[in-house]
Design a protein around this nucleic acid. Structure first.
Lengths: 146, 146
DNA sequence: TATTGTTATACTCTATAACTATA
DNA sequence: TATAGTTATAGAGTATAACAATA
């Protein structure tokens, strides 16, 4: 993680600054989640299934942009940790649900994430702050094609 | 029966939106650099050493936030591709310099990167655009500590 | 036919520890 | 002593192909 940033001529490039900012912030969040023994993707899944019921593994992957195949080890870890359970919807699909222990861990997760988000926004000067999320959402909204 | 796919409730979180935006944009840039047979890190190195003379491998790593150890295969690839050469500074350090072929590839790289950056900024609505780079730089400037 | 869950695999990026040769 | 370059390695994240069972 960058503690100091030497003067970098590439810093005028928004795309480069975007990458650096995201890397720095995600490293920071990753570190803050270590005490909960959760990765960022784990936390995302817990927070998502808490607000959307009857989400299957495929559903979660579509929303969070995680490949179906990569959901398997992720959910297996959360299940092994006792945080989620699989509840059959039909003979093909399973809903991913929080266990009581998962709900407790979610509360801690939310506290950490909220604090992280607040700290992140606090680092942005007042006049730029309200424009940050709208700008990011404009980027994710549609792909940039040549 | 198809279940409905709700919007992502995590999109209200700036940190999450930052991660999604960076992932999407970096995937886009990666794809655009494929014709040049360069990765984003490769392009960054070429652009950096073009503006800073006598950069050692360690210097480049410090500026671009790449571990010393990870610079080795990166520079080896660029050298094998004939784009850079190593020029001894003393018996311990080597400057990384562009070859003539490297300078040609750099020109193509700059064209692609400039187009990419323009397209990226164009996706952001006018009223938010001037705030984007300053916000990002505020995030990279100092670490967010609890 | 299309989708779900899964296995296997591979490639990239990143992080750390340790070694050597030299400053 | 500290730094430059390197080797080896391991952990993540990500991507694709393929398969069986079911919708």
């Amino acid at each position: 993680m960058p503690r100091v940033m030497p003067d970098d001529p590439l810093n005028e490039l928004p795309g480069y600054a975007l990458r650096r900012a995201a890397n720095a912030m995600m490293a920071e969040l990753t570190a803050r989640l270590v005490p909960l023994d959760l990765r960022i993707s784990d936390a995302s899944v817990l927070m998502l299934i808490a607000e959307r019921t009857d989400m299957t593994s495929s559903d979660i992957g579509k929303v969070l942009d995680i490949q179906r195949a990569n959901m398997v080890p992720l959910l297996n870890r959360l299940e092994a940790a006792g945080l989620i359970a699989r509840k059959p919807i039909d003979r093909k699909s399973q809903a991913v649900v929080l266990t009581p222990e998962g709900r407790e861990r979610l509360a801690d997760t939310r506290a950490i994430v909220t604090c992280f988000e607040d700290d992140l926004m606090a680092r942005i000067p007042d006049e730029h702050r309200p424009h940050f999320l709208p700008a990011l959402r404009a980027l994710v909204g549609q792909p940039v094609d040549p």
